[in-house]
Design a binder for these strands. Sequence first.
DNA 1: CCACTGACTTGTTAATTGCAAGTAAGTGAT
DNA 2: ATCACTTACTTGCAATTAACAAGTCAGTGG
Lengths: 121, 121
Amino acid sequence: MAKADKSNITTKRSICPVASTLDILGDKWSLLVIRDLFAGKTTYSELQNSPEKVPTNILANRLVRLTDHEIVEKKPYQTHPVRYEYILTPKGRELGPILKSMVTWGEKHIPGTKAMIKRKR
Amino acid sequence: MAKADKSNITTKRSICPVASTLDILGDKWSLLVIRDLFAGKTTYSELQNSPEKVPTNILANRLVRLTDHEIVEKKPYQTHPVRYEYILTPKGRELGPILKSMVTWGEKHIPGTKAMIKRKR
DNA sequence: CCACTGACTTGTTAATTGCAAGTAAGTGAT
DNA sequence: ATCACTTACTTGCAATTAACAAGTCAGTGG
């Protein structure tokens, strides 16, 4: 039941790029997963161990949605046992500025917040 | 029933600025309302007439939440009859970069989207 | 064979959304 | 004064989503 319904993947509320971006990322968890991928996490269990403790069924669902949108790519990095890594596609990596502007705004306007992402590469 | 519950207004999932920003704005509608305010809309009915057709109870709820967070200010601009205008506070106006980076990403990666915001001032 | 890990699913309850309709103050026309 | 209309919302309820706990399944190491 972690399948995102394909019918809605291309459904846009309007031609506005903001609305369309929110159709994909407009929820409490998607950008948090992407933040963690930016921070260098790659596996399901690493993503599960975020400080915000994303529920496992939601994490699974979001990963499916994000891979459907080609923001994230899932690939096995070993067999026996099969283990998967999730990595950002170029399209996903270009979400950096959105994350960055959120960090800037959050740090300035929400007391008690502090970023600690060390961007790799 | 359009009251946002005050208990949750200062509840943060973590000290991460991205997570905290998403606690406030992480849904399908909030940033759309802010987009419209950036675009120069000021009244409830103008906001209701967005191309995405936000449900009226959700619009009311989001406006309460956003004013609670001091992102939006509600003030009467006339009496008899009382009419209200919603305007962005300085804190709200600083969300511009987030919106802007969403426009950039959306236009580049979501086919069929086109921005048409003419920023005023 | 047993315990353990990683990567998820499934079931159930709780919360949120979306739609339709209704309300209330006030205006302007008949 | 009554009617129609506008703005700015509320209210009720069904439907979708999210959250939480538990369970599954392949595989490994002892």
